[in-house]
């Protein structure tokens, strides 16, 4: 039996719950077929979420999922440019014409990149610093914001290494949100198929919350109280640093783990809510950071 996971036509964080619901349950009992033939656009968040699902299947020793590539050649080329297809080939049985990977688009600050250990974090930070400073300044970020952005990226990637217990993925892209927000934005998407916030914090925090312990309370404990699974008092500062940075530059973060999603909602976003529970389960943790280039109108 094969279970079809239809990739949303436009796959970004807002389509994530629809995508997560398509899996039914975890671990998947059937072979999965990711059908992206009708997909026309995927954000960094969508790319890393697809790889995360396939990674979770591989770790559960499930059968290699099938991926039907988008029907549109332009979309396939974009997928190649974004670095997604190179990594998809390792995790999926790919069906469809795979274009040769041209060099990254001018708005790609960081192609889809695996994060397996601290060396990868060094590489990610170095590459973004090296190649992206110019783009970030073009986008309109101040130099100081660019430094903070790289620091936030480093801390977000380290969460995979320190807490997930498995491989994760990161991608960074700049977008023109003039119609939506009146400015350009830079988006970091980080995802892993690891143990998630609840299991990571359970040994040290669950007793404190008692019956209230859940994916949502685990996210709150990490984000609001800066708790960590480590007893070292210096821990838990990565998210605190990201929070401070986003507060200063009017950025937004969403963290989805298991069945809950936390968001710090800046004034420019009137649609989102701070906490959503009872979502369709998805493995690991997915983090998205959105940074407006200029103060949104």
């Amino acid at each position: 039996m094969t279970r079809i996971v239809e990739i949303p036509t436009s796959f970004d964080d807002r389509a994530m719950d629809h995508y997560a619901a398509a899996f039914g349950g975890w671990p998947a009992g059937e072979r999965l077929l990711f059908d992206a033939r009708g997909t026309t656009w995927v954000s960094p968040y969508g790319f890393v979420a697809m790889l995360t699902a396939a990674q979770a299947v591989a770790e559960a020793r499930g059968e290699r999922p099938i991926l039907y590539l988008p029907a549109s050649e332009d979309v396939r080329r974009y997928w190649a440019r974004a670095g997604f297809l190179r990594h998809a080939a390792e995790l999926f049985e790919v069906h469809g014409k795979v274009p040769r990977a041209p060099s990254g688009s001018s708005d790609t600050l960081l192609e889809v990149t695996p994060v397996r250990g601290s060396d990868d974090v060094h590489d990610v930070v170095g590459r973004v610093q090296e190649g992206a400073s110019r783009i970030l300044l073009e986008v309109g970020l101040e130099a100081k914001a660019t430094i903070g952005f790289t620091m936030a990226l480093s801390e977000a990637c380290q969460n995979i290494v320190e807490h997930a217990g498995t491989t994760g993925w990161v991608a960074v892209q700049a977008y023109d949100w003039r119609r939506r927000l009146g400015t350009r934005v830079v988006v970091i998407a980080v995802s892993d198929s690891g143990i998630g916030f609840r299991r990571s914090l359970e040994p040290t925090q669950a007793r404190r919350f008692g019956d209230r312990w859940s994916d949502a309370t685990a996210l709150e404990a990490a984000w609001i109280q800066n708790v960590s699974r480590f007893r070292d008092p210096g821990r838990g500062q990565g998210l605190a640093g990201i929070k401070r940075y986003l507060g200063r530059w009017d950025g937004k973060i969403t963290i989805r783990s298991g069945t809950a999603r936390l968001a710090n909602v800046p004034a420019w976003d009137r649609e989102d809510v701070p906490m959503t529970e009872q979502l369709p389960f998805f493995p690991g943790a997915q983090v998205q950071v959105i940074l407006p280039a200029l103060a949104p109108k």
């Binding site: 601290s118 974090v121 060094h122 930070v125 090296e130 480093s154 380290q158």
Partner: peptide, 14 residues
């Protein structure tokens, strides 16, 4: 300490 060409002090192991 690390075999990176960059000059960034990042990550706990580093």
């Amino acid at each position: 300490a690390v075999t990176t060409p960059y000059r960034n002090l990042v990550t706990r192991p580093t």
